[in-house]
Amino acid sequence: MARVELVGLTKRYGQTTAVDTVSLAIPDGTYCCLLGPSGCGKTSTLRMIAGHERISAGDIFIGDTVVNDMTPVQRGTAMMFQSYALFPHLSVTDNVAFSLHMKGVDKSTRRRRAAEMLERVHMERYAERLPGQLSGGQQQRVALARALITNPKVLLLDEPLSALDPFLRIKVREEMKRLQMELGIVFIHVTHSQDEALALADLAVVMNDGVVAQSGSVRQIFNEPTNAFVASFIGGHNVIPGDLIGRGRVDVAIRADHIDIGQAAPGETSLQGTVRMVEYQGTNVHLRVRGPAATDILVIKSEDAFDRDPVNVGQAVTLRWVATAARELH
């Protein structure tokens, strides 16, 4: 079994601690996303799992083996690098066949196996091209083929979609998810995009300042953020001081699409404010409302709901939501 477990994993660079005693269990066959802003330690964590960064303290298990001092090949991991790091002097085929070449597999066998792998990622037509002659999306496929030909137990992906344009990103991310389900191996995918993590992850791990801020299923994280950082980073939430709504000295998170405009019914909480911005976004309309104590509150309404009861900038409004929609944060 190729589950991955991190136990007290720590990375220090001189005086600074990039990853601080992170513990995490990733079950076999999981698509795991490490999510967080730049500098949160997600890439260092990935690089330690990959074996490209020394561990300052802690252990990494793959299956039942401690892999701390093993080479990437011994670990059974393969890494897809940010901007892919394809070898510029080698053709697509030779890039994909590189690991077989290093193992001493003979030329005709490795070319055949590379061709099979290229077929799998629909790149057989470009087999003899150089990486410099490929588009970003094509390079991504080659990098994927080059990593998968090693039959990894764990595939590590460092911002694999960030070099692609937004349209392609969505298409490729579908393919990645499908591929992961077909292969049934652990994917660990580092990203700073919430959308990407929400769309892909079975297990989402939100990191901040070198520690895990929250981990769980994406629905858990989106619906039950446990702290202000996760609530604001994952997006679509308002974090407001609890004393504004009589909840005391805690912050609360309220989903922007759970807030409505109008007089509060019994069991609902209300807050007065002034509309500062109305932004049409197609399916939804985003409203920014300035509440008491200069708190900005985001309200997301569907286009239809907005049209039934439109508001204008500068208008005084009452915001309302069911009391249970406000989650206390710690």
Partner: peptide, 29 residues
Amino acid sequence: FDRRLEEAGRDLGASRFQVVMHVILPVVA
């Protein structure tokens, strides 16, 4: 020189010497 190329080489099972011969040397030739 992009050091990720070397890491990619190591990741794909090249020894340090193989990285020099098959990655670094051809790129800087």
